[in-house]
Amino acid sequence: MSKFSHIYIEERATNYPVAQQVLKRFSDSKRVIIRHYKDVFNRPHQDFRRQKASTKLILAVKPEPFLYPGPEVCESFGNQNFYYTSPILNCIYDCHYCYLQGLYPSANIVIFVNIEDFFGAVDRQLEGGTLYLCPSYDTDLLALEGIVPYASRWIEFAGTRQGLRMELRTKSANYGAIAHLKPVEQVILAWSLSPGEVAQRYERLAPTLKARLSAIKAALQDGWQVRLCFEPLLKVDNWQQIYGKFLDEVFSIVPAERVFDANIGVFRMNKEQFKRISRLRSDTDVFAFPTVCREGGVVTYEDEEEMREFFYRHLSRYLPQERIYG
């Protein structure tokens, strides 16, 4: 069955402009009125893999809290007051290693339509000082821009707020959707990148490396601050050779001197999520390599340090060390 064949709508979400916009965009979808998004999203025994083949949309109103402290496993890039927020839950891509499979009970996409309430929460936080905010962690806002224009809404909002620094993380090549906006000093567009063969094998439905690099190049040309996120580094046969060549390819297209910064992250995951997902995914070798559980309950490869060192060394050939995190 096609994607978004059904849209579940919380009664109280119906009249929000965002809800109206989505319903207009998917006028052929079956509409089912619900009381609370968790009645659908949190049902017991849902099959994430099967749902991924026919994802539904859920339109809901998010109650407080809107901002959450940045998780330990995520890089803060030297910023104080690191928070993330989730205006959308889940993603249209289907990456083998994605932690969302173990985080949420459902593969359906929840769009919180009360975006103004999120902005209000940011304003309240900014009254107490600066804020480093990531609104595209538990989703990919740019990839979903055609469904709900939250990437541009967040960019426009950030552009009017002093003391706010915002990272918009994406794998999308959909830069064209925000190309009409003037670059905003407060916003960093952050692209997750993997070698072509890794992306093809493990990042189902996500754009190719070439498409992502073209998007980055265009964004840099337009004057955006661009972050390159080399994560997760995955174990594959000949990983040294593949990841070495990958960096050569990236910087043959992307002018290194214009890159704002970069980070390196070897594949890692919360222990419980790792356990849950590896049971779900008998179709991939991502979870099959020898791993260790580090302090704080984070599972990663046994030779994580070796991978990181290798990649850091190679990346240092292109970027100064002070612009490399992780």
């Binding site: 069955m1 064949s5 619900i34 659908v40 849902q46 099967r50 749902q51 083949a53």
Partner: peptide, 10 residues
């Protein structure tokens, strides 16, 4: 109480 079957097939 409300209950929702998953309709994943045509």
């Amino acid at each position: 109480n409300q209950y929702f079957p998953d309709i994943l097939i045509e």
